[in-house]
Amino acid sequence: MPVRRGHVAPQNTFLDTIIRKFEGQSRKFIIANARVENCAVIYCNDGFCELCGYSRAEVMQRPCTCDFLHGPRTQRRAAAQIAQALLGAEERKVEIAFYRKDGSCFLCLVDVVPVKNEDGAVIMFILNFEVVMEKDMVGSPAHDTNHRGPPTSWLAPGRAKTFRLKLPALLALTARESSVRSGGAGGAGAPGAVVVDVDLTPAAPSSESLALDEVTAMDNHVAGLGPAEERRALVGPGSPPRSAPGQLPSPRAHSLNPDASGSSCSLARTRSRESCASVRRASSADDIEAMRAGVLPPPPRHASTGAMHPLRSGLLNSTSDSDLVRYRTISKIPQITLNFVDLKGDPFLASPTSDREIIAPKIKERTHNVTEKVTQVLSLGADVLPEYKLQAPRIHRWTILHYSPFKAVWDWLILLLVIYTAVFTPYSAAFLLKETEEGPPATECGYACQPLAVVDLIVDIMFIVDILINFRTTYVNANEEVVSHPGRIAVHYFKGWFLIDMVAAIPFDLLI
């Protein structure tokens, strides 16, 4: 008679799926529990143990900040960024110097990925580790590398530091407007667009060049630039800015003055950032001319202004700041037409079709709590990747769950009947059967004279019903998954307890 339990259901295979997918890609990662103190490590794979030199037993239950890997060259700011990422709910990448158990130093890129439950609360953290440099290539500990984003994938490793954006290309926007319009339909740009040429040739750093990471940081200074100062900065030398009595002219307006920039070969870094931020506020060169004239017309309804409409929906549905990093990277690809469009465009503009998908598509409701890094690593669709929660398995109709209350009560009843059979069957065979043979035949009273025979008949009927119930009862397979398919249940029961239950259900007393 089957006594099969499996009270692990309803099970959740999400954690096993993450481990299996990460292991298949030869990654070095740990999984931490966000619900406990210090976000203790609950799993670390073999790749991480080989990377740091510690065994799994030495890593388990330690804080996922990996303070046991810190050393003299470990930056405090990087460690603080990892700790801050564990307090938030967004994906974050941090470069930090770690030390192995043998004392060797290596520069590592740590990717902190939160995993949320159905309520939107962070319950786990996945920390992925990628070695960037070994100890002989690690720089000085005073050099802070965590304020910069990861290198873009479309640049060669040897040319990542030679990417320079020439400031004269930004200063000569109005001069290039006529050349853009003359391109017409034969050019790649839309009317009114501004073409910015980027020099990728390796050259020595000069005062006129600005690194790509500095251009990325310009967006942080746009908020500090007032509207009046932006307007004066875009007017140009024809209309000098008016300053109040006793007030000095704005240095932001002076930063885009061609006369002032041409007199000296070098520009201050602050002026460069502010000038680029001011130019980015204009949607095209037409807006710059309109600002000089004193009238700013409404933005025209053409394809170039609607190019950012799908980007707005993608940004609203993005799951991490990696989408913004990807957008900034692609927006700086050289030799393309940049349409400086305000994100607050007309909502009635139709979304044009684009061959290049900048932001990841909208994630469906079932995966809105899973970050983009987890979705990318697992390579699963929205119909396959579940949320991290207890999910009731989908069972067929008329199927009994093996952990249901009805099955528990039924098993206790069958257990009592088995005990009765084990006690009274030998007793009936030894004593009652002998008395029946010696006594007179009682054929007239039937079952009324033999109450134990009636009980034995009921017990046999219950055993037959138990066999039928076992054909529709779920079970737990070797992978700790609840199986509810009727065919698989029948095959599993035939290979197991079916023969024993059938022999126990045969009414031998009635056959004798």
Results as ranks from 00 to 15, higher is better:
V3F: 13
V8I: 07
Q11G: 15
Q11M: 15
T13G: 13
T17A: 12
I18M: 12
S26Y: 08
R27P: 03
A32E: 01
R35Q: 14
C39F: 07
I42N: 01
C44I: 01
N45I: 01
N45E: 01
F48N: 01
C49N: 10
E50F: 05
C52R: 01
R56E: 03
A57V: 15
Q61G: 14
R62W: 07
T65D: 05
D67G: 06
F68A: 01
P72C: 02
R73D: 08
Q75D: 15
R76Q: 15
R77H: 13
I82Q: 01
A83D: 10
E90C: 08
E90V: 13
E91L: 13
K101T: 01
K101V: 01
S104G: 13
S104Y: 03
S104T: 14
C105V: 15
L107Y: 15
V110E: 01
V110C: 11
V110D: 01
V112T: 09
D119W: 05
G120M: 15
G120I: 03
A121S: 13
V122G: 06
N128D: 14
F129K: 01
E130I: 05
V131I: 15
M133K: 14
D136F: 15
V138R: 14
V138G: 13
V138P: 08
S140Q: 14
D144Y: 06
D144V: 09
T145D: 15
H147G: 05
P150M: 07
P151I: 14
P151Y: 13
T152N: 03
S153H: 06
S153C: 07
W154T: 11
L155I: 14
P157C: 09
A160L: 13
K161A: 06
K161R: 12
K161T: 14
L167T: 15
L170G: 15
L173D: 12
T174K: 14
A175W: 03
R176H: 06
R176C: 05
E177A: 08
V180I: 14
V180R: 15
G184C: 06
G186H: 14
G186P: 08
G189A: 06
G189C: 10
A190R: 06
V198Q: 11
A203L: 06
A203V: 06
A203G: 07
S206G: 12
A211M: 15
V215H: 05
M218E: 12
D219F: 04
N220S: 05
V222A: 15
V222I: 11
G224A: 14
L225H: 06
L225A: 06
P227Q: 06
G236Y: 15
G236M: 04
P237W: 04
G238P: 05
P241I: 12
S243I: 01
A244L: 04
P245M: 14
L248G: 12
P249W: 09
A253G: 09
H254W: 15
S255M: 05
S255V: 15
P258D: 13
D259F: 15
D259L: 08
A260L: 12
A260H: 15
G262F: 04
C265K: 14
S266T: 15
S266G: 11
S266R: 07
A268S: 08
R269D: 07
R271V: 05
S272E: 14
C276M: 07
R280M: 14
R281H: 11
A282E: 12
S283V: 11
S284A: 12
S284T: 13
A285W: 11
D287F: 07
M291P: 11
R292C: 05
A293V: 08
A293C: 12
P298S: 13
P299N: 08
R301I: 09
H302N: 11
S304N: 07
G306K: 04
G306F: 07
A307P: 12
S313I: 07
G314Q: 07
L316I: 14
S318G: 11
S318R: 12
S320V: 14
D321C: 15
D323L: 06
L324W: 08
V325L: 14
Y327M: 08
Y327L: 12
I330L: 11
P334F: 01
T337A: 15
L338G: 12
N339T: 03
V341H: 11
L343N: 12
L343K: 05
G345P: 08
D346H: 03
F348M: 11
P352L: 13
T353M: 07
D355P: 12
P361K: 09
I363V: 11
H368R: 12
V370H: 03
V370G: 04
V374G: 01
T375E: 06
G381T: 05
A382N: 06
A382H: 12
V384W: 09
